[in-house]
Amino acid sequence: MHIMEGYLPPLHAAAWTAVAVPFVIAGGITLAKTLRERPETRLPLAAAGAFAFVLSALKIPSVTGSSSHPTGTGLGALMFGPSVMAVLGTVVLLFQALLLAHGGITTLGANVFSMAVVGPWVAWAVWRLARGAGASLPVGVFLAAMLGNFATYCMTSVQLALAFPDPASGFGGALAKFLSVFALTQVPLAVVEGLLTVLMVTFMTRYSRADLGRLKGAA
């Protein structure tokens, strides 16, 4: 779901950067304040960031027989909150560009907006709604992670459709085109990511409850 380096026309790349920056700055201010008031949260937060990066490089089975990678946006949003996730997600995306040549610098803004802003906020909102409506923990986590992933790829489709409107049918046609291509590959992946996140949360609450508690103090 990363838009690769240089794929977006320059004006689009600049515009999406401008859209993403306020979210990242807001998250950065929160983060800097937390770090100033409680310096002991620095290393748990660094651990969380590194964890998010490695998680996104983890292989998960894909239906087509090949393997794919989770986005980790859902889990990140549930663990750190969507505001801090904007900063951690930006760092992860930057490192993916610089260490794996995955994504890019000029498209960083667009990718941050879809993966570190829209995905986490949707996941978080779904989580609150589901829990408010009385859903159990696994159901809430599943819905949040799946819909967070889903929202990310819808946003990516919108970004691509705006940049490359269809010659015949314009933005709508392009959106339908990108969504339908993504649907083949991404809807099953969103479901897999939902399942993976439920399993991970189950294992974590079973084996590392103390770590999760520490995180609550940090983020």
């Binding site: 983890l58 089975p61 239906v63 993976l196 189950t202 974590m204 084996y207 590392s208």
Partner: peptide, 28 residues
Amino acid sequence: GVRRSLRSAALLGSGLLGRAYVKAERME
């Protein structure tokens, strides 16, 4: 198999968080 690799990925991922903390704590 898909089921088992999904379970493995989840075990690995959830174990990594604890790992990261231990590592971070030692560094601190």
